[in-house]
Simulated assay, not measured.
Amino acid sequence: MHAMAQACIGDSEFDRDTALTERTPGVYDAELSAGWTIIQAVNGGYLLALLGRALGDALPHPDPFTVSAHYLTPSVPGKAVIRTQAVRTGRTLSTGQASLFQYADDGTEVERIRVLASYGDLDALPDDVRTTAKPPVMPPYEQCLGAEAGPAAIPGSSAITERLNIRLDPATVGWAVGAPSGRGEMRGWFGLADGRDADPLSLLLTVDALPPTSFELGLKGWTPTVELTTHVRCRPAPGPLRVSITTRNLAGGFLEEDAEVWDSADRLVAQSRQLARAPRG
């Protein structure tokens, strides 16, 4: 993998752009950065990480285990407030809910996203693993393609692409040259552009950061998330991540995306499923 300046967890652009200011206990002010937009909307994974940080501060357990989010209205760069509430606190798991609001022209609050999540301690989990899951089969990093490999700008590219280091499996980039495969698959290597290693919080971004599988189905345009559930399975090892996303059914103007995230130690570190509106293109 090519050399890059290495940012540290807690001192990277991702951390600065997900920083929160506590207004009162459980209520946090935030500034949604324009650096994480897709076209004009703020990326759903970035929003999930913001809410995840708030819940990690408000709940007694540190790590997200499962986070389910409903996206109610599109978010835009600017000021926001996150309101959290503890639902139940147990010995090994705490459950809480959080909502992110922005402000209408008349100053009233507009809810953008609502989350229900359970938190625990990933470091306290047992080591026993029994699985049939396997890492995605794809070429080495050097043989995968970044945005610069296309003959023209990748459709839907925007500010967020400058903050991510994504190299896509050539078998899933036919859409970029007008020849989509029709298989509804997207695979690639993933990292943050400043070299920050992954942690449980950034995994909430990772599951929603690759181009949508609808591109390989021959559809172009915005694919807004309706609902996204993410499971964080273990703390990722340092190094690049591999992400595999599949869609098996597009019907009635909606599609599902199932994502798996694997770390450099060949461990399944996160899984997600989302329902999204299919592009109209």
Rank of each mutant, 00 (worst) to 15 (best):
H2L: 01
A5I: 12
Q6P: 00
Q6H: 11
A7I: 07
C8D: 12
G10L: 08
F14Y: 07
R16A: 04
A19F: 05
L20R: 03
E22S: 13
E22Y: 04
T24S: 14
G26E: 03
G26L: 01
Y28V: 00
D29Q: 14
W36C: 04
G44Y: 08
G44A: 14
G45H: 10
Y46E: 10
L47Y: 09
L48I: 03
L51M: 15
G52A: 11
L55C: 04
L55D: 04
L55K: 02
A58P: 02
H61A: 08
T66S: 14
S68H: 09
S68M: 11
A69V: 15
L72C: 05
S75F: 01
V76R: 13
V76P: 05
G78Q: 03
A80K: 02
V81H: 03
I82V: 15
V87A: 12
T89P: 03
T92W: 07
T95R: 14
A98G: 07
L100A: 03
F101K: 00
Y103Q: 06
D105N: 12
D106M: 03
G107S: 07
G107L: 08
G107C: 09
G107H: 07
T108H: 15
E109N: 02
E109Q: 13
E109T: 01
E109C: 01
V110E: 14
V110Q: 15
E111Q: 14
I113W: 05
S118R: 10
Y119T: 02
Y119G: 10
Y119V: 02
D123M: 07
A124S: 15
L125E: 14
L125I: 06
P126S: 05
D127C: 01
R130M: 08
T131I: 07
P136D: 02
P136M: 03
M138R: 01
M138N: 00
E142K: 13
L145F: 00
A147M: 07
E148D: 13
A152I: 06
G156I: 11
S158P: 11
I160W: 03
I160G: 04
T161C: 08
D169V: 00
D169N: 01
A171R: 07
V173P: 01
V173H: 00
W175S: 02
A179I: 02
A179Y: 01
P180L: 05
G184V: 02
E185V: 12
M186L: 00
R187I: 00
W189F: 04
W189C: 00
G191N: 06
L192R: 11
L192A: 03
D194P: 12
G195N: 08
G195R: 12
P200S: 15
L201W: 07
L201A: 04
L203R: 10
L205W: 05
T206I: 03
D208L: 10
L210I: 01
P211I: 07
P211A: 05
S214D: 13
L217Y: 08
G218K: 06
K220D: 09
K220V: 05
K220G: 09
T223M: 14
V226N: 06
E227T: 15
V232T: 12
R233N: 13
R235Y: 07
P236V: 12
A237I: 04
A237V: 04
V243K: 01
V243I: 14
I245R: 08
R248H: 13
N249I: 10
N249K: 14
L250G: 15
G252A: 06
F254P: 05
F254M: 14
V261P: 07
D263I: 03
D263E: 08
S264W: 11
A265N: 13
A265E: 15
R267Y: 10
L268R: 10
R273F: 05
R273A: 11
A278V: 12
